[in-house]
């Protein structure tokens, strides 16, 4: 069982989704790894539905203080909240780092396992492995990852079955693919 999952994940060890128009810029960030202006760190505990959401609401507050466009702010709020819930519901806990730059934000979620068996399947809307507790809390509709993808300009997901999962997303303050209202 473990072996077959490992083989499966080897064919798709990671997943990239970048919105048209952002490829060059995101590639540049990956190559140059610029220092963030500010870095915020949070811990996320397994199954802690009381405290979950703290990181995303903190980051949202922070971006408001910077005067980030309200629509972009809502996208950051959605993506970060979904990602935070994912760590809470599907992992043994983890940590999140929000790297804030002057024209974009990168958020990195890293958990302590147990990993995603099949990333491509996990990206399908409606697919869920949520347990009963998560469903009782109103989560587990299988829309988390697709929703993150929809709201960010670039997204990276890698997972080792049995090991940790890393999710990174990029959101620019200036809308490019989104027509500002």
């Amino acid at each position: 069982m473990k072996g077959s999952e490992a083989v499966k994940s080897k064919s798709i060890p990671e997943y990239w989704a970048i919105k048209p128009g952002f490829e060059e810029e995101i590639k540049k960030i990956i190559n140059e790894r610029p220092e963030p202006e500010i870095s915020l760190d949070y811990e996320i505990a397994e199954n802690d539905y009381v405290k979950t959401g703290k990181a995303s609401s903190d980051v949202k507050f922070f971006l408001k203080k910077l005067g980030v466009n309200p629509e972009v702010l809502r996208r950051v709020a959605v993506a970060s909240y979904e990602a935070e819930i994912n760590v809470t519901a599907h992992s043994k806990g983890g940590k999140v780092t929000a790297n804030i730059y002057s024209d974009y934000i990168i958020m990195m979620f890293e958990d302590y396992g147990p990993g995603i068996a099949d990333i491509e399947q996990a990206m399908q809307p409606g697919f869920s492995t949520a347990n009963e507790l998560a469903r009782e809390m109103g989560f587990g509709a299988g829309l988390g990852l697709p929703n993150i993808k929809k709201n960010c300009d670039g997204m990276y997901l890698s997972s080792e079955p049995g090991g940790s999962t890393t999710l990174i997303f990029f959101i620019y303050y200036e809308e490019k693919s989104y027509a500002a209202k």
């Binding site: 408001k64 203080k65 910077l66 005067g67 002057s102």
Partner: peptide, 8 residues
């Protein structure tokens, strides 16, 4: 809410 009009 914002601390300055200029984001930097």
């Amino acid at each position: 809410m914002e601390l300055d009009k200029d984001i930097k």
